[in-house]
């Protein structure tokens, strides 16, 4: 659905996107992960022709974006960052205007149905200036979806939302892909969020691709890293080294003992340590990718 090759964007001396290539397949929920300032927004804006690439090729639905801008954009729905919308207009009027811009003249009922989808039907006639950030976000989503696009590009869609809102949006995104067969590209700075929605993902850092692939592979449970602190780490080390757990052991330092293993084995490990009369003070597990991502974040 999207094919990006060797994309570059510089603003003066600053390189925002550096030789970025990736592809999104039809029907994907594609996670676009990166910390703030990694180049996510710049890339997304280039996909929407809001920013002109310094070099590189963008193809959407098999066509070059620069040459087929109008045709492509008619199939794309987008929400970029926090939309403020026309504050002096109602939710319904906002939706109606953007539908018209896509060349659609929808009935009031059809528009209300769209608002229903994002849980705003009861506020259809309220002016947007009375809306919370979360509500604007929902309306922005409705605007992105109003013309039934094949490709939906969402830039940090859950930003500023309450937990219920985040869950709602997540559910909507998954259903758009699974039930309506839409392709969704969703950006976030939270791995946990991508993990819950996306089937494929990319991590970018300082404008460069760090890793891209299937979420199930990248977040393989085999690769869970476990950090253990006990009453006496030296004894615990000895006990573990002497057992079948030794194969998973990675490191030992002041912060505890590090192991890499399948997530499912954790209860068994706990039982073994307890049986070995070792007091567990803490046990943290996280995926290695998350470790990796955290390191990127801390580097900033």
């Amino acid at each position: 659905m999207i094919k990006v090759e060797h994309l570059h964007k510089t603003f003066g001396d600053f390189t925002a996107v550096n030789d970025l290539s990736f592809s999104v397949n039809p029907g994907d929920v594609y996670g676009f992960l990166g910390q703030n300032g990694a180049g996510k927004s710049t890339t997304i804006r280039m996909l929407l022709s809001l920013i002109h690439p310094s070099s590189g090729i963008i193809e959407i639905a098999g066509k070059n974006l620069t040459d087929n801008r109008k045709e492509i954009l008619s199939k794309v729905g987008a929400m970029i960052e926090r939309p403020d919308l026309y504050k002096y207009l109602s939710a319904l009027d906002n939706l109606k205007l953007f539908a018209k811009m896509s060349g659609l003249h929808l009935s009031k009922q059809a528009l209300i149905n769209q608002l229903e989808r994002v849980g705003l039907a009861d506020r259809a006639d309220s002016k947007v200036k009375t809306f919370s950030q979360g509500m604007k976000q929902r309306l922005g989503l409705a605007i992105a979806l109003v013309h039934d696009p094949e490709l939906i590009i969402l830039d940090e869609p859950t930003n500023g939302m309450d937990p219920q809102g985040i869950a709602d949006i997540r559910e909507l995104i998954v259903s758009l892909s699974k039930e309506a067969g839409k392709t969704v590209l969703v950006s976030s700075h939270l791995l946990s969020e991508i993990e819950l929605m996306a089937n494929r993902m990319i991590i970018i850092h300082k404008g460069k691709k760090m890793v891209e692939g299937e979420v199930s592979q990248l977040l393989n449970p085999e690769q869970t890293s476990v950090r253990l602190t006990t009453g006496n780490d030296l004894i615990a080390m000895k006990v573990l080294s002497a057992s079948q757990w030794s194969v998973y052991m990675e490191s030992q330092d002041a912060e505890g003992i590090g192991l890499t293993m399948n997530k499912k084995l954790i209860p068994e490990l706990v039982r073994f340590l307890t049986a070995s009369q070792i007091d567990i003070l803490s046990l943290q597990h996280r995926h290695s990718l998350e470790d990796y991502f955290l390191k990127l974040t801390q580097n900033l």
């Binding site: 804006r45 929407l48 022709s49 809001l50 801008r69 109008k70 045709e71 954009l73 008619s74 794309v76 987008a78 929400m79 970029i80 960052e81 926090r82 939309p83 403020d84 919308l85 026309y86 504050k87 953007f98 811009m101 896509s102 060349g103 922005g140 605007i143």
Partner: peptide, 15 residues
């Protein structure tokens, strides 16, 4: 631009 609607407008199929 200030309201954040310019980007929404410009990613519609309008030149």
């Amino acid at each position: 631009a200030n309201m954040g609607t310019l980007r929404l407008m410009l990613c519609k199929p309008i030149s």
